[in-house]
């Protein structure tokens, strides 16, 4: 990609980035999309299914996006939602891996909590946070995929409710009520989640 006088608006923030993808040279626009969104998308996917699987998923997401670029309609949502929507569909095939990974993370809680005595406060706080994260992992494993998507697209991917709605093809009111319900239920169930649960 060469830098020229009239380069794309690289200062358009994600929440108003609605590119026209029907141009004659998709390589330019897809180069920009990749440079802007691939790294955060990878981080999000890696937290869900691990780094290696996430690299494959990022690659697939952009290739699917390229092939389906004429389906992207800028009037119906920002491009980031569309990309995360594609990634979410691809992630479906790995749902079992994700649940297995979450259960494994939940089992690690015992180790994390066992190390905390006799250290300073910062270490204790870190260990406490790690133990809580492990409990959360156990609770996340018990959620439906749809609930996990809404929660993690919001919390890990940093999408706003409108973007989550567009990514998942559900109304924004549903996103907000689902998020509220899932958070309320996690606050109650995560602390009680047994570690090592299968």
């Amino acid at each position: 990609m060469t830098m020229t006088e009239r380069q794309p608006p690289d200062d358009v923030p994600a929440h108003r980035d609605r590119p026209h993808l029907g141009g004659p040279e998709p390589a330019v626009e897809f180069g920009r999309l990749f440079d802007t969104y691939a790294r955060p998308l990878h981080r999000y996917l890696a937290r869900r299914v691990g780094q290696d699987a996430a690299h494959d998923l990022v690659s697939e997401t952009f290739l699917v996006a390229l092939n389906q670029r004429h389906d992207y309609d800028p009037r119906r949502g920002v491009v980031r939602s569309w990309l995360y929507g594609i990634a979410t569909n691809l992630l479906r095939r790995r749902a079992r891996d994700e649940v297995r990974g979450l259960r494994a993370a939940a089992r690690s809680a015992g180790h994390a909590a066992g190390q905390d005595s006799g250290h300073d406060n910062a270490v204790a706080a870190r260990v406490d946070a790690a133990a809580m994260a492990a409990r959360l992992a156990g609770a996340l494993a018990g959620l439906s995929e749809g609930d996990r998507d809404v929660l993690l697209l919001t919390s890990w991917a940093g999408l706003d409710s409108n973007e989550v709605a567009d990514a998942l093809g559900i109304p924004v009111g549903t996103v907000r009520s689902r998020l509220h319900r899932v958070r309320r239920s996690l606050r109650a169930t995560a602390p009680r989640e047994e570690t090592g649960d299968e």
């Binding site: 937290r47 691990g50 790690a130 994260a133 996340l140 929660l151 919390s155 958070r183 995560a190």
Partner: peptide, 16 residues
């Protein structure tokens, strides 16, 4: 608490 757990869980991923 929930936000802390969410922030912490698998926060150590790397992008190659």
């Amino acid at each position: 608490d929930l936000d802390l757990a969410l922030r912490t869980l698998r926060s150590d991923v790397d992008t190659d």
